[in-house]
Amino acid sequence: MKTQHLDTVVIGGGAMGSAAAWALASRGRDVTLLEQFSPGHRNGASHGATRNFNPGYADPDYVAMLAEAVRLWDELATDGGERLLARTGVVNHGTDPRLGDVRNALRGAGLRAEFLPAAEAAERWRGIRFDQEVLHMPDGGQLNPDAALPVMQRLAADRGADIRHRVTVLDVAVADDGVRLTLDAGGRTEVLTARQAVVTAGAWTAKLLGGRVSLPRLTVTQEQPAHFAIRDEDALWPGFNHVPGQGPEFAGWYSPVYGMQTPGEGIKAGWHGVGPVVDPDRRSFTPEPAQMAALQRYARTWLPGVDADSLTDISCTYTTTTDENFVLDRIGPLVIGAGFSGHGFKFTPVVGRILADLATGEGAAPAIFSASRPGVR
C-alpha cells in the first residue's frame, strides 16, 4: 500500500475546493486537491452554465464579502482569460421586507441599487411580470460554473497545486500530527498523511466526517429548477428573485423563486431549498412532479416571456444549515467549508480566501460561520 506525506490536502474539487486550492497555491503553499469524480461532472452543486450573482444582502458580513467577490471574480477572469461574470443586473421583487435595508447596505459598500416602479421595470424587462416596486441591482448578474471551476483549477496547477480527479477519500482519521486519509484511486487503495485537510466535500461532508467533529446539521436536498424556452426573443433578462405575497394567486408556492437567462438553454427558474432530502450517492435525478407542475404554473403567471409548456429539467444538490449561513471554521487539523445553502456560489473566491486564511493561520472567518454557533444543531 502506497503512503504519501503532504502538507495541505483539499478534499472535494467543486467550487469551494477549487477556490481554496487556487488561494493556497497563490500564496506559495504546497496543496493537493482530491476530487472523486471526473472534471465537469453533474453529481453535486457546482455545475451548469449559470448561477445568479444576487447582491441582495443587508448583513454586513455578506455585504463585505460581496464587494470582495466582485474584485476577485474580475481577477480570476483576467488571470484565466475567460469571462466568468456577465453583469446583466439582478431584480428582486415581491414582499421581501428587507429590500430597503438591502439597498442601503449595498450603497454603503459602493454597490449600486435603486428602486423602480413596477411599470418601469415591466417596460425594461417585459419577460417578467411585476406587481409592485422592484429593487434593481446593476452590479449583479450571472456566473458561469462550467467555466469558473476549470479556470480556478488551472490557475492553481500553474502555481504548483497537484490536482487529482477520480480519487475518492474513503476515510479521514485525525492524528496528533495531522490527518491520515485512505483513498480509492482507480481501484487502488492509497494512504496519505498530511499536516492538515481542507474539507469542501459538499453534500458528502457529513458522510465523510461522521462523528469525528461536531458540525451544524447539514441537510442535503435534490433541487430541480428548469430551463424554459424563450417565447419573446427580444426581451431582456436580468437575474431575478421573487418573494410571494399572501393572496390566492400565490397559493401553491413552495418558496421564493429565483431565475436567470442561460444562453442557449432558455430561462432558468426554480424553487429555493425545498427539494426532497436525499443521500448524494443514491439520487434519482428525477424531478418531483408536484413541484415541477407548480413551477410551470409560476412561469405561466409571472414569466410572460417564456413558454411554460416547453422546458428541460435540471438537477443539483443543496447542502443547507438551519440558519442558511455557511460553515467556515477550523477544528484541529481540519478546515471545513460546508453548508452553502443554495446561495454560496457567488462568494466562491472569497470562501477560497477565507479557507486559505484558516489553513495558514493568517485570519479568521466571521463569527456567523462558526461551526459552534448556537441554534444550528
Rank of each mutant, 00 (worst) to 15 (best):
R29W: 02
G375P: 05
G80Y: 07
T182I: 09
L170I: 00
T193L: 06
K2C: 07
G210K: 06
E75M: 01
Q142I: 07
A251C: 10
A173V: 08
D309F: 06
F228M: 12
V327T: 14
K2H: 11
H41Y: 02
A290V: 02
P238C: 07
A299K: 05
A161T: 05
H242M: 10
Y258K: 15
A229N: 05
P39I: 04
P225R: 14
K207S: 12
L149H: 06
V274H: 04
G342T: 03
N52I: 15
A201G: 13
W125M: 09
D313A: 15
V172G: 08
G108F: 04
P117V: 11
R98Q: 14
A173R: 15
G44D: 05
A69G: 03
F115N: 13
P333D: 02
N144F: 03
M137S: 12
D79V: 00
A201Y: 07
V335A: 14
I267E: 02
W237D: 00
G339A: 08
G375A: 00
D96R: 13
V213N: 10
A105Q: 03
G186Q: 11
R29V: 03
R42D: 03
A118T: 06
T32P: 03
T322L: 15
R180M: 05
L358W: 06
R283N: 06
A64Y: 06
T301Q: 15
P244W: 07
G13Y: 05
L135F: 01
A121H: 08
T286A: 10
L311C: 10
L358D: 00
E114L: 13
F228Q: 08
V191M: 12
L135G: 11
W237H: 04
F285I: 06
L33R: 09
G187Y: 01
W271E: 05
T50P: 09
